[in-house]
Amino acid sequence: MKHLGFRAHDLGTFDSATQLASAIATYGPSIPIQLAIRKVLRDAPMSSSYTEAFIKNLHDELAAKGASVAVFGCYINPVHPDKAIRDEQLSSFEQHLKFANLLGCPLVGTETGSLNADCSFHPDTAEPKVLDVLYRSIERLVEAAVKYDAIVGVEAVSKQHTISTIERMAALVEKFDTPHLKVIYDPINLVPWTGLAEQDGSSRGKPSIEAQRTFVNAALDAFGPRIAALHVKDYRLDSNGYKIGDLPFGEGVFDWKDLFSELRKRSIEVPALLENANPATLADTLSLLSTY
């Protein structure tokens, strides 16, 4: 059975954990979510001010309505060009790791950043020296994850972020060969900016199933056993042939049914979380995905 859910903040923002839990429960009796506390709860404290009482109350309110946290979101820039800010963000991530198990979710997720403070594209992000900074940041976070018996979840983004390709993600998980580091697999994020390559090197507006399977299998061969969560959205190419990669599921060209079939073949069963979902159509989307 699939574990289908969504990002909590796609439902909006709420005044209390009780309101949030009630909103999630309208979509089913047992829903996994991605939770970024300050994106979804008004007046939520900074991570430096988290307390056991606050996190436990949040867990209990969600659990009372059947909701559970599959990814504890703390999306930072671990290669931020300002070292002081980078250290501050890494400390915030460590705080999330500290409280993760109390929330019922050991997995704390982040992307891998860029040389621009806002994580936008910078032409030098792929340089080896930036990768070295990322590795040092990940090493620090993994040490904290070991201390708190938690998990660092890493998500790649093509071209834009430090971990931008299947090969780079494979190298990362090989370097940090530990159960305290896992992959948040977002296949749309990994689609190259000019789309999926066909066998002859061309790129189509709607890729062939062969091109998609080559792309998916390369990722699953490289790090499939390390996947801890799946992000579900869609993409298409614009009139200039560049990826629009933040579309809701079903509004693009990616064949999710085929991907779920491949995941079943490989016995990869992880929470699948919708991104950029529309609350008005979310119930129908979850219902459709359950048939895939």
Rank of each mutant, 00 (worst) to 15 (best):
T112W: 06
T112C: 11
T112P: 03
G113R: 01
G113M: 03
S114R: 04
S114V: 03
S114D: 11
S114F: 00
L115E: 07
L115T: 10
L115H: 01
L115W: 00
L115K: 07
L115C: 11
N116H: 14
N116A: 12
N116I: 00
N116Q: 14
N116L: 07
A117M: 10
A117I: 02
A117G: 09
A117K: 10
A117W: 02
A117P: 02
D118S: 14
D118G: 10
D118W: 13
C119I: 10
C119Y: 00
C119K: 12
C119S: 15
F121G: 08
F121K: 08
H122Y: 11
H122T: 10
H122F: 04
H122E: 12
D124Q: 13
D124F: 01
D124V: 00
T125Q: 01
T125W: 03
T125N: 05
A126S: 15
A126Q: 14
A126V: 06
A126D: 15
A126W: 04
E127F: 11
E127G: 02
E127Y: 11
P128Q: 07
K129R: 14
K129E: 12
K129Q: 11
K129P: 00
V130P: 05
V130A: 01
V130I: 08
L131P: 00
L131G: 10
L131A: 04
L131N: 03
L131I: 04
L131K: 09
D132Y: 04
D132T: 13
D132W: 01
D132M: 03
V133H: 00
V133N: 00
L134D: 05
L134E: 09
L134S: 09
L134K: 05
L134F: 09
L134M: 14
Y135L: 09
Y135N: 13
R136P: 01
R136G: 13
R136K: 15
R136W: 05
S137W: 00
S137L: 07
S137A: 12
S137P: 11
I138Q: 02
I138L: 14
I138S: 04
E139S: 13
R140H: 13
R140E: 12
R140I: 05
L141K: 07
L141E: 03
L141G: 02
V142S: 08
V142R: 04
V142C: 12
V142G: 13
V142E: 15
E143Y: 10
E143D: 15
E143R: 15
A144S: 15
A145W: 01
A145F: 11
A145R: 08
A145M: 11
V146G: 04
V146L: 14
V146C: 08
V146W: 05
K147H: 13
K147M: 09
K147E: 12
K147S: 09
Y148R: 05
D149P: 03
D149I: 06
D149E: 15
D149C: 07
D149W: 09
D149A: 11
A150L: 06
A150K: 10
A150S: 15
A150E: 04
